[in-house]
Every structure is written in structure tokens, then in C-alpha cells.
Design a protein around this nucleic acid. Structure first.
Length: 947
DNA sequence: TGCAATGCATA
DNA sequence: GTATGCATTGCAA
């Protein structure tokens, strides 16, 4: 790096706001009741910059009186801004005073914004041969970037990123930083109230820039646009040009860059100390003294550290960190292969032979041929997405790339049944492998026609889930990614969902054939591809021994459904209605007006502006008042209205999400609720449940848990049995880490949290207090989630340092646990993935990120994924084995639900005694660990009693 | 009508 | 601090 002089220009308000909101959760209030968050935040940033960069020239720039020119051009400019928070207004004089004492120049010009001052100064300094760093998080500054002018952006979680020309080009997809102005002018900026072109957002603006280069270029070439967009752009040319002007940072503010004045010299230490003392800053004083410790150090450091002047960060850093704070939605993380985008194949460019099999005679010949195959891909086309009600429209088959057949089905249900009978020998043939994408769906559809799909299965969606669990697994995406092929989209055939959407039945036969057989053909090709890619022995086993067999189990559970007591829920709904109405009345009374309590926005205004319950309301990152549970709970003891609001929220949630929603989900044809288990969404290997989600039925609160009473056995001859693993994740981590102390505790059947507390707090197990056990429990769970002292102190009453101490003691008690955690992180660093006991992998691309926040998240994943995933593996094995036993024994009892560590069964009473043992044994012995697994069984006339 | 943000239910 | 799904609001399209 050259000896070029470096000037740092600090955007004061931006950093003050940022600092203020950084402490918003926990504002700094001193003994005089002053909110010092903004001062603290700003000073931390400033000292941080000085410490890191040791600039030789530095100035801090402020707005004053807003931008006269811009308001003159457009009186709405920044008119939507909220009033500056009180805590910031009061901070400004202090900050000025501190800066003066530090001998740092304050640059302001009445009638100009800091942006303009910084812009002007940076250009002047550049001319004088300086390298300029604009310290601001505000993306608007990107327009000023040149070879010598950089943005120096603070990033969440600490650290900075430098934006030079390449970074700006990448972020905004422009060739010149100046085009950022056009970009902002086109898309507008709601925070500054810059209108922009109506109908143009981020995506369109980028497109226009790529095409026309500038706002003027766009306006001169509107003939190249079409439709509504053309009209809109043409009608709003003026507005566009005005927006561009508003977004342009001025470079001619009457200020002067004076090298001498801007030199960073020694602060008036005594004076600064005095101010800090008045404000009651202790840590900051230390920090300040260290930063400027002995003038000589500063001088030495200045030359020594200059070598590390900010430079364009290397590639990894950009991709690793940028998504976090990008205002443009993380587009940089999921870069897709673009190389072949324009040469992607479709059915039109690829030769194929797809044929429909319409006549009775043709069908007979076709089936004969089909039965001669050893491996066939098939895909059902139906009238809808719900397999319980969907009718077959046709079935496509393919066993050779580029070739396939389509068997259309008659609308008449009896005729359809006759046709499926012809195909039954194929589906029920044990020796023909069946290939498909999301076979669970097809299996369920066919089950409704009484056809069982037998033989080996290959599901391309499941295969890809194991190969790349973080990606999505739609067939369209897979085809594009792995085969460079774009299949006909379903919307092309039946239109967008909503009003005019057709049924597959309404599509002409030739189109149906093209579409359906293409899907089968593509799926077959994907299978060939994935078969090789499944590669590793572990993954193969996982696929063939776990996921594929499980697919049949899940299909059976979903088809079975669970009985729901609608009457009970209806009466519960009425009760809730009453209570909610009462609360509503009380809240409106206290507020003095009626408003929408469910709207956080309106609620915030009532609580914090009208009632002024707090001096310094906490705000969310979008600038709204935060009305989150923890914030309100904190206030609840002082204000009845808050407690009522919390109760109101709880009851409304309960009513709308469960009590009222569940009865609507009862399937009329079966009278039961059929959830859909997603086998390929959770990156750790867990299942997820939806339509409805039966994995999040309330249990913690008395009121909520009533909902469980509505889940009942199918009739009086049955009873519900819930079997759940006790502490399975802790047992797994104990076993994997070989931490003897913990293993012994489990072997002795101890209460693990009490046992942990007894060791950590060094008291006999009988003397462990509730609080000690509770804290131990929190750490135990924290370990599974990849603890940090910060997270722990948020969860407990402990301070950050107490939390740290607790964690240290914990690790001292269970040293091997600590080693295990470190080993997982190291393994992930070396290999890029971690894995479960069965070899299920989770890839962690961010594990070596240079951004500490991003990396930290990956490290926690590295710890958690093997634990959560292994538990998922184990219960999956148990499910497969139990399902098999129930089938083989022709039991009337059915497995109905899985809730991560729990299985729920509808048990035929005469089978109960025998099955209790069977289920417990199968679950506890699903996988052998060095720690025994323990399963609790409960029986009842509803899901609440069975707990 | 679709989407992001917010908030909250579970393991 | 991990992993999910869903109801609601309010804005953009």
C-alpha cells in the first residue's frame, strides 16, 4: 500500500442513529435519567474507526437545517420522516462538545445535508491526492465512489466493509458508481421520500440501467418499452428526472478541505475525561484512554498500521457477509450458474417421442410392454393438490430417455377404476422399480383407487434432499440445475392459481401428454444423475434404508388422519370469544379509543404516543415501536392495559390459529384431519408438518393446551397413546462426546438438569434449588443450540459475565463436551459439512466466513445439526420398524402423528398391553448409543390426557 | 393478489 | 443460541 494520505469523513447522524438503535433493547440511562445511548453508540464507532485505521486526517460531518435546495425542488422531500427521537436530540450537544475536546473538526453548513458536505470534501481531498473513506452505512454514498474514494461501512456484529468501485458495481449491477444516482432516482427511496418512477422497484431499475445506462437514456428510449410500463414511464418522465436530482449528492457546498485542520492530533484528554465522567461512562473512558494511550504509541501505531489500510476485501468476504446487511436482499449469496442460461434446452429444442395411449387395445399392448420393464418412472396427473380428493386425469410413464407414454383417465369414476385395474399388475409388481418425483403424493393418490405401489422405489426429490439439503427440490429447479433443461411450466398449461385456473382435465390431450410425459422423462433422467451422485455408502444407506421406506410410512399416516372433536372446539371458540370481547372492552377503555389491537403499528402509537407509557420506547429495525412479547411483559406489572393486551394477543392467536382453523381442516370425505409431512424441507433431517401443522399444537399454557383435548381416538374402542423420547438430544450429545459424567447420570436415571446443577453449583443433588436447576437446564439446552454467553444471559436472569462464568464452570464439569463441540466446528472447517450418526450431512458454506456474525451462525449449526439431525434419524428408524411390525401383525392400531421426539398412536384397546411394550422397545432400540434411550408412554381419551 | 415483516406456536 | 409453519397487517404491484 502506498504512503498516500488517508482522510476519513464521518457521517455523524447515520452513526448516531445506528448507535442509538443498537442500544434500543437496553438503553443506557445514567443516574440523572439521561439516555446516553446515542452518545455511547457514536463514540464507540468513532473510537473503533480510529483504533482500526489510525487515520491521519479525520472530520465529522453533520446536517444542518435540512437541504434547502432539495426542499425547494420538492417540498415532500424527507417529509415522511418521524420526529427525531428525544434521546438523539439531547445527545447532539454532548457529541459536539466531545469532538471539540478531541480536536476533531466538525463540518456543517446551514442548508446542506451531511451527504453533500462529505461529497464536496471528498472530491476536494481527492484532487489533493488523498485516499478518502466515507464512514457511513448509507448506500446512497455509493454514487461518490471512485478509485480514491471509498465507502467504509459498519456492518452488523462489528467490523467494517470497504466499498470500492468493484463492490459498487456488484451491489448495484452498474458499470459506473455514478449510475447509482439513476438507480435511486428510478426506484425511489421511501426513507427520504424520493418518489422514483411509479411501478419501478429494485429489479426493474437494474434492468433499465443495464439496458439504457441512465434515467435520461431510459426516457429517450421509451419506445423500446411496452404495455403498462411504457405508459407509466412516459407519463412520469418529469418525476423521474426530479427524483434523480433529489438523489444526487451535491459537490459544490461552500466548505473547504483544509489539510492542516483535518489532521488528527492529540485530544484534550482531561477535558474528554471530564465529559465522560459527567455522563458516567466508565468503559468508554478506558477505551478512549487506550485508543490515545501515550501520544508516542499513537505516532508509532500510525506508521506501523498504515500497511493495513482498508482495501477492497477479498472475494470470500464479500460473498460471506454481504447478504446480511445488503439492502437488496442477499442476491449475492445464491448466485446461480449463469453460463448456460441462454442456451437452456426445452421440449422444443430436444427431440423426443411422447405418445398417448388412448384406446382399449393400445392400453393392453402398452401394459404388456410395461410389465417387461425392470425400472419405470411414472407421474400421476390429477385434478388437484389434495390427494384425498384429487381424481386421476392421467398417468405418464417413461423408461427410456426422451421417450414415454401417457394414459389418460376417463372422468367417470367407475370407468377410471376399470382402467386402473389394467395398470394394477404394474404398480403391484414387486420386481419393477418405480421412479418418481415426490412419490408420496402418487402413492396416496393411487391408494384412493385401492392400488398399492410395490417394489423398489427411487424418489428423485428425496435423493436430492440428501445430496443437497439446503437447496429446493422442485422438479423444475432440478431439471434446470442438473439437466440444463426447462420443462413446460404448470402455469403455462392451467394458468395462474386463483380465479381462472383450469383443471388438468380441461387441458387438451396433446398438451397433457407433452407436459406429463416430459415430467416422467425428466424425472427418469434426474434419477440416472442422482443415482451416481448419491455416491457415498452412508448416503446410499440413508436413502434406501431410511428416507425411501419412511415415505411409505408417512403416506400411510397421512392417509389415516386423526379424529377431531369439532363440537369441543366450537364451544372452546365461544368461550374465547367472550373473553376476547371483555379484554377488548377494557383495552379500549384504557386507551380512550377503539383501534386494531392486532396491529403492532397502531398499538405502538397508542401505547407510546398517546398513553406515553415509556419515555424511550424501543423501536424495531423498521422504525416501528416494538410491541414484542418481551418488551410488553416487562411493562405488564406497571400497567393493566399491557397485561390485557398480552392476554388478548394470546387468546386471539389461539383462536385463529387453532380453535377456529382446525375444524376447517377436517377432510369431509374422511371426517378426519390429514396433515402433510414434508420430508425434504428441514436442513437437519427433521420432518415438518403442514396443512395443518400438527407439530405445534399448544401445550405450555393451561389455556392453549385445551386444544389438545380435541384430538381424540377414532371411536370408543380406541385410545390414544403418546410415546416420547426423554431428553433424546442431550443423550445424543452425551454419547457422541463420550462425556462419562453425563453418561453415568443418564445410566442412573437421574434428573439430568438437577444432576448438572448439582455438579456445576457444587451442591448435593438434594439441595439443588429451583433456580439452579432452571439455569442448568438453560445451559443444557444452550449447549445443543451452540451456546454463547450473550444468548444465555438473554434467556436467564444472569448477567453476561455471570453467564460466561456459568458456561466456563459447565465446560469444566463436562470437559469432553467442550472438546466435542470444538471437534465439530473443526471438522466443519476442514470438510465443509457436519454429519449425523447415520451420515446425514449438512453443508456449511459459511463456516470459514471472515464475517464473525455469519461464521458464528455456521458454527452453531455445526454443533446443533448433528444433534438435532441424529435425533431425527433415530425416530425415523423407529417409525419404520414400528410401522412394519404393525403391518405384519395386522394390528388395527395405527401410527398417526410424529412430533420430532414423540409418536402418537390410535390404539385398538384390546391391543394396548402388547403394543405398549412393542412401541417402547422399538423406540428405545432404534439405534444403539453408549447412552440408553428412554421412552415415556402415556394413554388417554385425548391428546392432552395422553401426556 | 402477492410479499415482507412481525409475532408466536412446537420440539 | 437450533429447527420449523402459519395468521395477520400493511404495502407494492
Amino acid at each position: 500500500m502506498s504512503d498516500q494520505k488517508r482522510l476519513f469523513l464521518v457521517d455523524a447522524y447515520a452513526l448516531i442513529f445506528r448507535g442509538y438503535y443498537a442500544f434500543i433493547k437496553n438503553p443506557r440511562i445514567n443516574s440523572k435519567g439521561e439516555d446516553t445511548s446515542a452518545i455511547m453508540g457514536f463514540m464507540n464507532s468513532l473510537l473503533d474507526v480510529i483504533k482500526r485505521e489510525r487515520p491521519d486526517h479525520l472530520a465529522v460531518c453533520f446536517d444542518k437545517g435540512g437541504s434547502v435546495d432539495r426542499v425547494e425542488m420538492y417540498e415532500e422531500y424527507k417529509a415522511n420522516r418521524d420526529e427525531t427521537p428525544e434521546g438523539i436530540k439531547t445527545a447532539i450537544p454532548y457529541i459536539h462538545e466531545i469532538l471539540k475536546a478531541m480536536h476533531i473538526p466538525i463540518m456543517v453548513k446551514e442548508g446542506y445535508e451531511a451527504d453533500d458536505v462529505i461529497g464536496t470534501l471528498s472530491r476536494q481531498a481527492e484532487k489533493e491526492g488523498y485516499k478518502v473513506f466515507m464512514v457511513t452505512p448509507d448506500k446512497d454514498f455509493a454514487q461518490l465512489v471512485t478509485d480514491n474514494i471509498f465507502m467504509y461501512r459498519p456492518v452488523f456484529g462489528g467490523g467494517y466493509e470497504t466499498w470500492g468501485i468493484p463492490e459498487v458495481q456488484k451491489k448495484f449491477e452498474v458499470t459506473e458508481p455514478m449510475q447509482v444516482i439513476d438507480f435511486l432516482g428510478m426506484m425511489g427511496d421511501s426513507s427520504d421520500n424520493i418518489p422514483g418512477l411509479p411501478g419501478v422497484g429494485e429489479k426493474t431499475a437494474k434492468k433499465f440501467l443495464a439496458q439504457f445506462g441512465s434515467m435520461e437514456g431510459l426516457l429517450a428510449n421509451t419506445d423500446q418499452l411496452k404495455g403498462k410500463m411504457k405508459e407509466k414511464v412516459e407519463a412520469n418522465g418529469e418525476l423521474g428526472l426530479l427524483s434523480k436530482k433529489l438523489a444526487t449528492i451535491m459537490l459544490d457546498v461552500p466548505v473547504e478541505f483544509n489539510a492542516k485542520n483535518f489532521e488528527l492530533d492529540h485530544p484534550d484528554v482531561e477535558k474528554v475525561k471530564q465529559i465522560f465522567q459527567d455522563l458516567e461512562f466508565r468503559r468508554l473512558t478506558d477505551n478512549f484512554l487506550k485508543t490515545f494511550a501515550a501520544d508516542t504509541t499513537y505516532d508509532v501505531a500510525q506508521t506501523a498500521e498504515k500497511k493495513e489500510a482498508p482495501k477492497s476485501p477479498p472475494k470470500e468476504q464479500k460473498s460471506a457477509g454481504a447478504g446480511q446487511f445488503s439492502l437488496f436482499g442477499g442476491e449475492d449469496v445464491t448466485t446461480t450458474e449463469t453460463t448456460s442460461e441462454y442456451t437452456r434446452n426445452t421440449g422444443k429444442t430436444t427431440s423426443h417421442f411422447y405418445q398417448s395411449v388412448a384406446s382399449g387395445m393400445a392400453t393392453k399392448l402398452f401394459v404388456k410392454n410395461l410389465l417387461n420393464q425392470t425400472s419405470v418412472c411414472f407421474d400421476t396427473e390429477t385434478t388437484g393438490l389434495n390427494p384425498l380428493t384429487a381424481e386421476l386425469v392421467g398417468i405418464a410413464f417413461s423408461w427410456e430417455t426422451g421417450k414415454g407414454f401417457y394414459v389418460p383417465f376417463p372422468e367417470d369414476r367407475e370407468d377410471a377404476q376399470l382402467l386402473i385395474e389394467e395398470l394394477r399388475p404394474f404398480f403391484e409388481n414387486e420386481n419393477i422399480e418405480k421412479i418418481g418425483q415426490n412419490l408420496k403424493y402418487d402413492i396416496k393418490v393411487l391408494a384412493k383407487y385401492n392400488v398399492e405401489v410395490k417394489g423398489k422405489l427411487f424418489d428423485t426429490m428425496l435423493a436430492h434432499y440428501l445430496i443437497n439439503p439446503d437447496m429446493r427440490h422442485n422438479m423444475d429447479v432440478l431439471a434446470e440445475t442438473y439437466l440444463n433443461y426447462t420443462p413446460i411450466s404448470i402455469t403455462e398449461l392451467i394458468g395462474k392459481k386463483g380465479k381462472n385456473q383450469l383443471s388438468m382435465r380441461d387441458v387438451p390431450l396433446d398438451k397433457q401428454t407433452e407436459y406429463a410425459v416430459e415430467d416422467a422423462d425428466i424425472t427418469l433422467q434426474l434419477k440416472e444423475h442422482f443415482e451416481k451422485e448419491l455416491g457415498e455408502a452412508n448416503t446410499q444407506k440413508l436413502f434406501n434404508d431410511i428416507e425411501v421406506p419412511l415415505l411409505r410410512v408417512l403416506a400411510a399416516m397421512e392417509l389415516e388422519g386423526i379424529n377431531l372433536d369439532k363440537d369441543f372446539l366450537n364451544s372452546l371458540s365461544e368461550e374465547l370469544n367472550n373473553d376476547i370481547a371483555n379484554l377488548e372492552k377494557k383495552i379500549y377503555e384504557a386507551a380512550g379509543e377503539e383501534f386494531n389491537i392486532a396491529s403492532p403499528k397502531q398499538l405502538g402509537v397508542i401505547l407510546f404516543e398517546k398513553l406515553k407509557l415509556v419515555d424511550k420506547p424501543k423501536k424495531t429495525k423498521t422504525g416501528q415501536y416494538s410491541t414484542a412479547e418481551d418488551v410488553l411483559s416487562y411493562l405488564a406489572k406497571d400497567h393493566d392495559i399491557i397485561q390485557n393486551i398480552l392476554d388478548y394477543r394470546g387468546l386471539s392467536k389461539l383462536k385463529s390459529t387453532y380453535v377456529d382453523a382446525l375444524p376447517l381442516q377436517v377432510e369431509t370425505s374422511t371426517g378426519r384431519v390429514h396433515t402433510d409431512y414434508m420430508q425434504t424441507v428441514a436442513a437437519t433431517g427433521r420432518l415438518s408438518s403442514n396443512n395443518p401443522n400438527l407439530q405445534n399444537i399448544p401445550i405450555r399454557t393451561e389455556r392453549g393446551r385445551q386444544v389438545r383435548k380435541a384430538f381424540v381416538p377414532r371411536n370408543g374402542d380406541y385410545t390414544l397413546l403418546a410415546a416420547d423420547y426423554s431428553q433424546i438430544e442431550l443423550r445424543i450429545i452425551a454419547a457422541l462426546s463420550e462425556e462419562e459424567t453425563m453418561i453415568e447420570a443418564f445410566k442412573n436415571g437421574e434428573d439430568i438438569h438437577a444432576s448438572t446443577a448439582s455438579r456445576v453449583f457444587n451442591v448435593p443433588i438434594s439441595d439443588v434449588t429451583r433456580e439452579q436447576r432452571s439455569n442448568a437446564k438453560t445451559v443444557n439446552f444452550g449447549i445443543i443450540y451452540g451456546v454463547s454467553a450473550f444468548g444465555l444471559s438473554n434467556q436467564t436472569t444472569l448477567s453476561r459475565s455471570e453467564s460466561k462464568e456459568l458456561i466456563d464452570t459447565y465446560y469444566a464439569t463436562y470437559p469432553k463436551l467442550r472438546n466435542y463441540i470444538q471437534d465439530q466446528v473443526d471438522f466443519a472447517r476442514d470438510n465443509g459439512y457436519v454429519q449425523t450418526v447415520l451420515g446425514r450431512r449438512r453443508y456449511l458454506k459459511d463456516i470459514n466466513s471472515r464475517n464473525a456474525v455469519v461464521r458464528g451462525a455456521a458454527e452453531r449449526n455445526a454443533v446443533n445439526a448433528p444433534i438435532q439431525g441424529s435425533a431425527a434419524d433415530i425416530i425415523k428408524i423407529a417409525m419404520i420398524n414400528i410401522h412394519k411390525k404393525l403391518n405384519e401383525g395386522s394390528y388395527k392400531t395405527k401410527m398417526l402423528l410424529q412430533v420430532h421426539d414423540e409418536l402418537v398412536f390410535d390404539v385398538y384397546k384390546p391391543e394396548l398391553e402388547g403394543l405398549k411394550n412393542l412401541i417402547k422397545t422399538e423406540m428405545e432400540n432404534a439405534y444403539q448409543l453408549s447412552v440408553p434411550l428412554d421412552v415415556d408412554l402415556d394413554i388417554g381419551n385425548n391428546w392432552l390426557e395422553a401426556h
